[in-house]
Nucleic acid binder design. Structure first.
Lengths: 343, 343
DNA sequence: GAATCGATTCAAACCGCTTTGGATAGGTCA
DNA sequence: TGACCTATCCAAAGCGGTTTGAATCGATTC
């Protein structure tokens, strides 16, 4: 059932039916109701291909997911972010387009999306220091919102980000308050912008107490269970091991916990751990009582906000870039306690 | 730059240019090369909206992701499956469309995709016992491939699945060979088809040795860290606790490990654990040596195969349903060992 | 009673591509 | 030489909507 058929059924022109369905004012209320009823009866849904061509809009938002050709890792926060953003798109009649590409093809992917008119805008994921994609998207004129920020970017852009610096400053400060002095940082890869900010927060907190950072207590790696385990094992076997850790993800913290227990130490008593908790739906930090003390900020909510911001932006083409800074909350769990007595 | 402009630049008709670019035979080779060169020079990409309308195909595959309104959980295997399927789509010029909907709206979502002509086919995720979506998709004539199977489905359909029954039969058999007799099953929700099959494999293995299953050793729940922990804690505090576990996911196994260690027991010595390992990229089961002994089968590979199968099907409309059964391999890790001496 | 107006409705153009059904020209065959 | 191919190219008709510009008509105004 298409528009023409529906119109002739009703004895109306396609024009009028189209207008009735799209809420234009110049159509008689009685007619509109008749049209609406008929559309519902026949379960009519306008062909999105036709709408897209006619309006020149795609009613779709793109997400380019680069897959590193070497280690083939998919960002674990991806599914929750998508879930949040997807909710918003569905409500607004937008489709979500995912483009999985080898990471060296990312630029081409954006250019293609633009040239093909496949989507009206994109969300930029996992920004790095001085991220070249921001310039690219600006240049080709594809509207976008960044999930995160890019330190050093010359051009203004819209973003939604967690206050990573503050979160790690508070986490570190909390451990300092508990009397810890040997505090380790197990960070993500430090060409990622979020990791840079987290490191800064950690260093700021130490500096505020006049404690100098020990490079041996700072690791930067992929946030996997195995790498968390390795970092924990290595640091705990130092001559002067840390009594506390600040660690960038729930997943690597599971590895860290494994390392702690392998050493015969007890989490929360011998060694304290504060994690950054993205509140992933499939990896909750405990049910009622949190397992780990954490700086928590929902990735799904970030997805919602980024999506909503982008749709807003599309509605107001040449408005100024928008920004949203989310604060993480520090929640106390069972993985932290006062610093053990010095031996 | 659109087709008409490109054509007039070249002094050709849009017809010829279109045919040249799409590899039709009735165009002079010299002309074709001239067209190709010009297209490349101007970085011409045909507007996908126009192609879709003109051909009646969407060149897109849909994935409907239901989000349970209550617990808001996203399937953790989702991102890896998507990554695998997405690779295949990209290579074949297809787009991937993700539709995030409240689970009670799933049926409507499929009907909409069909009516709007938004995609040419869909992948059906997380099938259940006698899944109604199979009938729906068949009825509305939207081509699909199921990731998994649906016990009890009346109609034939195409699917890609892991041999879950066999995997769990082997896992259980392996533990029996090690002398374990009190073997627990920590399963996923048993209205999910995969969980039904895993349970059957577990029971088959026990039955083959004349061991009767103990209901107290069989749990069925969501596959989260917390639930894995709870199941482990409960069972280990039974008067006659299990000496081994077969458990449905890496994530819940992390919770189980936590429960084991809380009891002062050692994984692989006091308690053996075999997991089902979906080989998720962000949650690898160790690096070189597996942490857990596991039945491993890559979800990403399943994604690739399901996507390829669907594209095949679209190319051969009324062919018979296709099926692909993947075998999991049993890999030996550090979480299993001979049954401890009976006290 | 003619001109004007607001409320409705419609015919036709258009979005950018594909595809059908010729048209043209040069070569081949009897 | 005339009929018949073959190779190559093109005009025009869709695809299914939206949108522009105009038509219709009863009511209102002067």
């Amino acid at each position: 059932m298409n528009l023409k058929q529906l119109a002739s059924q009703l004895g109306l022109s396609p024009t009028t039916v189209s207008r009735a369905l799209n809420g234009y004012p110049e159509v008689n209320e009685a007619t509109r109701e008749r049209v609406m009823a008929a559309a519902k009866r026949h379960n009519y849904r306008p062909d999105s291909r036709a709408i897209r061509l006619a309006t020149g809009r795609s009613m779709a938002i793109g997400h380019v997911i680069p897959v590193a050709t070497r280690h083939e890792i998919v960002n674990p926060i991806f599914s929750d972010f998508i879930a949040g953003a997807g909710e918003v798109y569905s409500r607004s009649g937008y489709d979500m387009l995912i483009s999985v590409v080898a990471d060296e093809d990312e630029e081409t992917a954006y250019r293609n999306l633009r040239a093909r008119g496949a989507c009206d805008g994109v969300i930029l994921h996992a920004p790095r220091l001085d991220d070249a994609r921001i310039d690219l998207l600006t240049e080709i004129g594809l509207p976008f919102v960044v999930h995160g920020r890019s330190t050093g970017a010359a051009l203004p852009y819209s973003w939604v980000d967690v206050n990573n610096r503050r979160a790690f400053e508070r986490a570190t400060g909390f451990l300092l308050d508990l009397g810890h002095r040997r505090i380790a940082l197990v960070n993500g890869l430090e060409f990622m912008d979020f990791a840079i900010r987290r490191r800064k927060g950690y260093l700021d907190a130490l500096a505020a107490r006049g404690i100098s950072a020990d490079p041996a207590l700072m690791a930067s790696d992929e946030m996997t269970e195995a790498r968390g385990h390795r970092a924990g094992r290595d640091m705990l076997s130092l001559p002067d091991p840390p009594t506390a850790f600040v660690i960038s993800s729930m997943i690597s913290a599971l590895g860290l916990r494994r390392a702690i227990e392998e050493q015969g130490l007890k989490l929360g008593r011998d060694v304290s751990v504060v994690i950054h908790d993205d509140d992933l739906s499939y990896l909750r930090n405990g049910e009622d009582v949190p397992i780990f003390t954490a700086a928590r900020s929902s990735v799904r909510e970030a997805g919602r906000q980024a999506a909503a911001m982008l749709l807003d932006l599309l509605g107001a083409p040449d408005s100024a870039p928008r920004e949203a800074l989310l604060e993480a909350e520090l929640i106390i769990g069972q993985s932290t306690g006062p610093a053990p007595e010095r031996k």
